[in-house]
Amino acid sequence: MMNWDDLRYFLALVDCGTLTGAARRLQVEHTTVARRIDALEVVLKLRLFDRLVRGWQLTAEGQDLIEHAREVEERWFSFERKALSASKMEGVVRISAPPSLSTFLLAPRLKILCASLTGVELELQAERHQVSLGKREADIALRMARPQTAGLVIKPLASVGYGLYASKAYLKKHKEDDWEFVAYEKHSATPHHQWLEDYLAQRKVVLRSNDQMVLAQCAAANLGVTVLPHYLRQSHRHLYRIEQQACPLRRKLWLVMHDDVRRSPRVRAVADGLIDLFSGAEMTDLLL
């Protein structure tokens, strides 16, 4: 009989294109991925992938099965989500949030929520990419962009303010006309990084990074001026907010769940706890 779980390995290899990528997604060894694909091929009596020197390549037979495999996968995840909605007040609840927000806002403030949820274990996933709530990669996601995917429950959680930051030592040593900048990677679509690119004009950028926690550390280490969410000012005691050159941007932070899981007692309790956390005066002060 076919092991239905082997379809996950098949689709992960289709999506990622390499054994290593599929293994990383599934959090297993690449040899496990290869073994599960081999087993699926034996049961189906089909060759799904050609093993080439440059990598594994889908056969025509494998290509024909992708759509059907995705239908089976979606039905399985739908079954899981429905089962979760009928579950008790116990088990794991996975929260996905951006790394800096997870590190400097959530992690230091989850103690009370954890203590109030007897029988519930929180799993905080600090991730740059948007995980799939439909595939149960997380139960709750905090996102800086409003999702457009159907079937999601979306609630505005808070407003996040931004500003220009540098160290006091840097600002004491450099006049505004002589400022140099640490900026995000080029071609970023993020609003506050686009604003910084416009603000820069022809001024010098000394370093770029794809991580705003790196930018915060660079600014605190006297490397230059950067734009940061206000909550990151607590990441380093040497960061100083430049009030006279305010960044006007505010971005919405959204709490997102799949519609099928919002009735789960434990997911609902965690979501309510996060809503209460972000509605407090302390959090508002940190964000704005």
Results as ranks from 00 to 15, higher is better:
residue 3 N to V: 06
residue 4 W to D: 14
residue 8 R to A: 09
residue 9 Y to M: 06
residue 15 D to Y: 09
residue 18 T to A: 00
residue 21 G to I: 00
residue 23 A to M: 04
residue 26 L to A: 01
residue 26 L to H: 04
residue 26 L to F: 02
residue 29 E to V: 01
residue 31 T to P: 02
residue 31 T to R: 08
residue 34 A to C: 05
residue 34 A to G: 01
residue 35 R to H: 05
residue 35 R to F: 03
residue 38 D to T: 15
residue 39 A to L: 11
residue 40 L to I: 00
residue 41 E to G: 13
residue 43 V to R: 11
residue 43 V to P: 05
residue 44 L to S: 15
residue 51 R to T: 02
residue 51 R to F: 03
residue 52 L to Y: 00
residue 52 L to M: 08
residue 55 G to F: 14
residue 55 G to C: 10
residue 56 W to F: 07
residue 57 Q to P: 03
residue 61 E to I: 08
residue 63 Q to D: 11
residue 63 Q to H: 09
residue 65 L to S: 04
residue 69 A to Y: 03
residue 70 R to H: 04
residue 71 E to V: 08
residue 72 V to M: 02
residue 72 V to W: 06
residue 74 E to A: 13
residue 78 S to F: 10
residue 78 S to M: 03
residue 79 F to A: 14
residue 83 A to V: 06
residue 84 L to A: 14
residue 86 A to R: 15
residue 86 A to W: 15
residue 103 T to E: 09
residue 103 T to L: 09
residue 104 F to Q: 05
residue 106 L to N: 07
residue 107 A to Y: 05
residue 109 R to W: 02
residue 111 K to N: 09
residue 113 L to T: 03
residue 113 L to H: 09
residue 114 C to E: 13
residue 114 C to M: 13
residue 118 T to E: 13
residue 120 V to E: 03
residue 121 E to Q: 14
residue 124 L to N: 03
residue 126 A to T: 05
residue 127 E to H: 05
residue 129 H to V: 10
residue 131 V to R: 07
residue 131 V to A: 02
residue 134 G to E: 11
residue 136 R to I: 11
residue 137 E to H: 13
residue 141 A to G: 07
residue 145 A to V: 11
residue 145 A to K: 15
residue 148 Q to D: 14
residue 150 A to D: 14
residue 151 G to D: 12
residue 153 V to K: 12
residue 154 I to F: 14
residue 156 P to G: 15
residue 156 P to E: 15
residue 160 V to Q: 15
residue 161 G to S: 07
residue 162 Y to M: 13
residue 164 L to M: 03
residue 165 Y to C: 04
residue 166 A to L: 04
residue 168 K to E: 05
residue 173 K to R: 11
residue 183 A to C: 14
residue 183 A to P: 03
residue 189 A to M: 14
residue 193 H to K: 02
residue 194 Q to G: 08
residue 197 E to G: 11
residue 197 E to T: 14
residue 205 V to D: 04
residue 206 V to C: 07
residue 206 V to M: 02
residue 206 V to Q: 04
residue 207 L to E: 10
residue 209 S to F: 00
residue 212 Q to V: 12
residue 214 V to W: 09
residue 220 A to D: 10
residue 221 A to P: 07
residue 221 A to C: 14
residue 222 N to M: 09
residue 222 N to P: 14
residue 226 T to R: 12
residue 226 T to M: 10
residue 231 Y to W: 00
residue 233 R to T: 11
residue 234 Q to L: 08
residue 237 R to S: 09
residue 240 Y to F: 08
residue 241 R to H: 04
residue 242 I to P: 05
residue 242 I to H: 01
residue 244 Q to V: 07
residue 244 Q to S: 13
residue 245 Q to D: 12
residue 246 A to T: 08
residue 251 R to L: 13
residue 251 R to D: 12
residue 253 L to N: 07
residue 255 L to S: 10
residue 256 V to I: 04
residue 256 V to Q: 01
residue 257 M to V: 06
residue 257 M to L: 13
residue 258 H to R: 08
residue 261 V to H: 10
residue 262 R to P: 01
residue 263 R to N: 10
residue 266 R to A: 05
residue 269 A to Q: 13
residue 270 V to A: 00
residue 271 A to T: 06
residue 273 G to K: 03
residue 274 L to A: 00
residue 275 I to K: 03
residue 276 D to C: 15
residue 276 D to S: 15
residue 277 L to K: 02
residue 280 G to Q: 07
residue 280 G to F: 00
residue 282 E to L: 12
residue 283 M to A: 04
residue 283 M to Y: 04
residue 285 D to Y: 02
residue 285 D to M: 12
residue 288 L to K: 01
